[in-house]
Design a protein around this nucleic acid. Structure first.
Lengths: 208, 208
DNA sequence: TAATCTTTGTGATTTAGTTCACAGACTTTG
DNA sequence: CAAAGTCTGTGAACTAAATCACAAAGATTA
């Protein structure tokens, strides 16, 4: 890491590079140039080099990047060398969609608990996970060493849930509720506003 | 519209302004300044004026914007003066989450059909909508004048579904599958890559 | 080993978007 | 109605990110 601020876009692209070099390395392809890696990922060679440049010097002039070395380096950078425990709060359709999403494990994420405030849902199984009452959050979060909370409750109760997550020691919140959460600076919140995506649809239909 | 390219961010912000002036206008508040509108939306006054400036001159020096006029103007710009028919393809959890999402109507969107390829799901009701076999897509799309297709099928079948949507005359695709779709330029595709959001979580946990 | 070729890493440039700042339009006050 | 106050619309300045472009490092060839 060279100290400069890393653009958000760089980080998503690192995952793309990671996927590609994993593939290459498993195909026993030993090295790849930034040009070819760019080709395969629909990005420019300069973009590839600049992105990697934020984190160090991984390449060799004249031959390119060693695929398995780069894979290992990216694993480290991206936190893919361990598993992160996740709790989903809100066992409605969206929560269920996330719980049944098979890709999680590949991302180094493991959903280990689900919560809801609706007593009708408590005790039901969503996949492997039994839905718990939200008042158990704090205890379970500590017992199961949960790092990440995903909020899929309605907008009206999202702030309240966020506060419980903070109290329970969660470090990162992924928020699907269409409200902006007020939490301490030390907690990272990422908003995924599906309604925004849906809304903007109509603009593009009107304007061509 | 003054011809200059409109930044993507401007468009989402227009919806925020729209919501605010709708509220204000219904409260019989006749005018609002860019400063106050900015205050209420956590944006700067300059941002508000610049955003609106892409589409014309709506304000009055010395007094600000007429809320109900601005509301009408934004309705027009954003395509909120009519309803757009939507089909969801993929009646799994995510599809169900969208179908049960009450906010749709507010966005001028109406889900009028749902499709799946799994015969176990055909005929089931998701809310008001009966799940149809995907082979009916083309006919139903024409009958029901569907403009928008939302893809919530697994990555592996997304491209195939996209092609059927194009064939059925859909103009806009909202794609939840984590693959990039290959469609004609005349079709607008918006990708919502949940897995990307999930993935990037781990980076931020490692790096602080 | 020298000449040539390939490819990185990174400053310099360009592009896109946001913020600043102010002239000029309109409103309010006395 | 003139002076003071408010607020817009928009170029200019700034900031962030992507792209360019090239010196230097290493690989390849003869």
């Amino acid at each position: 890491m060279n100290g400069k601020k890393v653009p958000e876009g760089t980080i998503s692209r690192l995952f793309i590079y990671y996927r590609e070099v994993s593939e290459l390395s498993s195909l026993k392809i030993k090295t790849i140039s930034s040009a070819e890696l760019g080709e395969r990922t629909n990005l420019s060679d300069a973009q590839v080099r600049k992105d990697l440049g934020y984190f160090g010097q991984f390449g060799v002039s004249g031959s390119g990047y060693d695929t398995s070395e780069l894979k290992k380096a990216l694993e480290k950078i991206l936190g893919k060398d361990r598993t992160w425990n996740v709790a989903v709060i809100g066992a409605g359709h969206l929560g269920a969609a996330l719980l049944s999403y098979p890709g999680f494990k590949n991302y180094g994420l493991e959903i280990v608990a689900a919560f809801d405030s609706d007593s009708k849902r408590i005790g039901k199984k969503l996949g492997e996970i039994e839905v718990q009452l939200i008042s158990d959050l704090s205890k379970t979060a500590k017992d199961k060493k949960i790092h990440i909370g995903i909020i899929t409750v309605p907008a009206a109760s999202a702030q309240e849930v966020a506060e419980k997550l903070v109290e329970a020691g969660i470090e990162y919140i992924l928020n699907f509720a269409p409200v902006s959460l007020d939490v301490p600076d030390s907690i990272k919140v990422k908003d995924v506003d599906l309604s925004r995506e849906l809304e903007t649809l109509t603009y593009f239909l009107v304007n061509k």
